[in-house]
Amino acid sequence: MKPIFSKLTGLCVVVFLAMGVSGAFAAEEGETPHYPIKKPREASWSFAGPFGKWDLGQLQRGYKVYTEVCSACHSIDLIAFRNLSGLGYSEAQVKAIAAEYEVTDGPDEDGEMFERTAVPSDRIPGPFANDEAAKASNGGALPPDFSLLAKARGVERGFPLFVFDVFTMYAENGPDYINSLLTGYQEAPTHIEISEGTYYNPYYVAGPSLAMAPPLDDGSVTYDDGAPETLDQYSKDVSAFMMWAAEPFLVTRKSMGFKVMIYLLIFSLLLYLTKKKIFAGIKD
């Protein structure tokens, strides 16, 4: 008996039906713009790939950019001073960093709250007492907390990139997005209208413009390790720092992964050979 249609044509019919119909209509809805206007640019990161490592110098520079610029508006609630040892700081250095901050503690035996010098076990204090205070000082917009931001942002990769990503281990959506955003401010094109008090940025994920003014510029932070004091460098450094803050065990995870992979590959090979040997024993 002849098949009604071959397997391949069958598949094609279905695929084309689906793609064709959705494609035709997708063209029609081209009028509602999709954000971000531009896809994030892919930068090269020391922590990318299966053997990714932190560049501790970069993380320390990023932390410097955070404390001197970003921390004026953005908190980093989940990070305690003790965590900063992950950036390569010694115990004494961490203590010294903490000592620069005052935190509220208490109540004491009289029932009063009091200020004291921070210790490594304290969380890094944020710039505002609460979200409402943060909004009030920022024209109604809430500057997001930095602790998880590098994992909480990411632009959809779309087909077929998301398939390739499985094999290339692309997992730097967050830092790529942040880096593109920080370096992506530009003059708004004449045909795009942006609302009062916002700044045009084609990389912004939720609209044509955002409430944050361009935060960094060439020379805004002094580096003491000789790294270039440019917007690009600041942006990359702080993005890397934010990735560390969001995923402090990233490098531990990848190096453990390598051992697990080697183990599983050898184990699988041994199992395969054992299986071959066992099945060779079956008599017909």
């Binding site: 299966p50 994992k151 990503d165 281990m169 997992a171 990848k254 453990m256 992964g257 697990v260 992979m261």
Partner: peptide
């Protein structure tokens, strides 16, 4: 499984 857990945990 390990590929995702160790290299693409948020994929």
């Amino acid at each position: 499984f390990a590929w995702f857990v160790f290299y693409l945990p948020d994929y």
